[in-house]
Design a binder for these strands. Structure first.
Lengths: 234, 234
DNA sequence: TGACGCTCGATTGGATCCATTGTGCGCCAT
DNA sequence: ATGGCGCACAATGGATCCAATCGAGCGTCA
């Protein structure tokens, strides 16, 4: 089946494309943590052979989204509470730095956009919308500085915790939300004033507070899928 | 040529093994930044076909050690001064955290080992020995805490700057060395007292000082290899 | 009846072959 | 002589085929 749909200019190998699509699917929640991923499925679903499929799995493994066991198979990575807290600790150190580097570069228009996102987030009651807006709010703060590696690192951290952010947001509603919304506005305010120190402080405690709240809900990490052995992945 | 030397128990796919060997070669300076890496060479040199070779290149790309251009080839990543400074800024935030997490877990014996390393480093006058000891000193501080992701992230950052640490150490001798040695002993001292705050502070300024010194030697980053196009890599 | 071992099936890993693409050299025209 | 065009070669990307390996289920024996 050598289809090779030329509906779009190929810019990068198929493995990269498959990895991107699979990444999106994992982040969207299509494959929850613990799900088995077979190479042939991936290949078939994305119109490629098993070679780029395997390449994609290896790439996602190096991003931490997938765990590949030799001669056995690939599974969507699960995190336990400790690992998730570790990620939040890393974010607590890195994102304030990234934000600081962006403070002098953000335009008033961009800050208005952030403000709008913060308000839209307050009005949203749908979980998926909230997740999307929250992610967009934070990552939009980081777009201006030419810090490729820092940006990529932070993005990977966000991606790894995505399923648990979803679970957390679903289970635990509206109690800490007010604090989060308040902090978002404090960040916008600090950005407006160009106060990098304050922006750093607020963002650090924002992330820290979320980590502490996560720690109070360990049930989120109780293995949802019974870590299937081999014959499954529907 | 299906050799498949069974001289060692295969624990993980060949792609992973090839990646590890190639990584070591790059870190050892065998392939300086800008060097073209052909899949067939890698395959031949490591007793595998081009499939695992390509897999290895993709893995190293995701670690930032190699840049793969679609349909064109792979090159060892070069850094400019700004990118190198970015890495040091990230390290300045992450390594103090990692050190802090290890402070309560390091045994007196391990700290003695660190002290020995620091002294050995002072006596060494060979560049390669210094590089090895310095790397070992710092990374040995991080072995106890069960923080996989943080540890991996830091390791990747060290790897990416390795060629430039080498160049820096070669070009710029013994002026900042005294400060570095002093700081190493201050770290050991803080570890002995279990003073996490002080250890963090010293390590942060240690990394920061190195970054500032790097910035005073931009000539290190003047493209050494003339970024060869396609036919080379000997 | 339960535990151990063996065989078979399903799935991954790797090698080879073919398609695709980018580069460089040479030729032709100005 | 020089600049632009085109063809040929070399290296990458992908598909298919074969080998290797793990797991599950069955059968046997204690």
């Amino acid at each position: 089946m050598t289809v090779m749909t030329t509906d779009l200019i190929m810019h990068g190998s198929a493995g990269t494309r498959v990895a991107a699509e699979l990444r999106d699917a994992i982040l969207a929640g299509t494959y929850p943590p613990g799900t088995r991923i077979r190479q042939e499925d991936v290949a078939g679903r994305h119109g490629a052979s098993r070679v780029p499929a395997r390449e994609a799995l290896r790439l996602l493994e190096s991003e931490g989204l997938v765990k590949v066991v030799a001669n056995t198979g690939a599974w969507v990575t699960s995190l336990n509470l400790a690992e998730c807290e570790e990620i939040y600790q890393i974010r607590e150190r890195l994102e304030p730095l990234l934000l600081r580097l962006n403070v002098p570069l953000l335009t008033p228009e961009q800050i208005d956009g952030l403000d709008a996102l913060a308000h839209e987030m307050e009005r949203s009651d749908d979980v998926e919308t909230f997740l999307r807006l929250d992610r967009e709010f934070h990552l939009s703060c980081y777009t201006e500085a030419a810090t490729t590696m820092l940006h990529d690192t932070v993005l990977r951290l966000w991606n790894r915790t995505q399923p648990y952010r979803r679970a957390y947001t679903t289970v635990f509603r509206s109690a800490g939300d007010r604090s989060a919304h308040h902090e978002h506005h404090l960040i916008v305010s600090a950005l407006r004033r160009g106060d990098a120190d304050e922006a750093e402080r607020v963002l650090a405690s924002h992330i820290r507070r979320t980590r502490l709240e996560l720690a109070r809900h360990p049930e989120i990490f109780d293995a949802p899928a019974p870590q299937p052995t081999r014959a499954d992945a529907r």
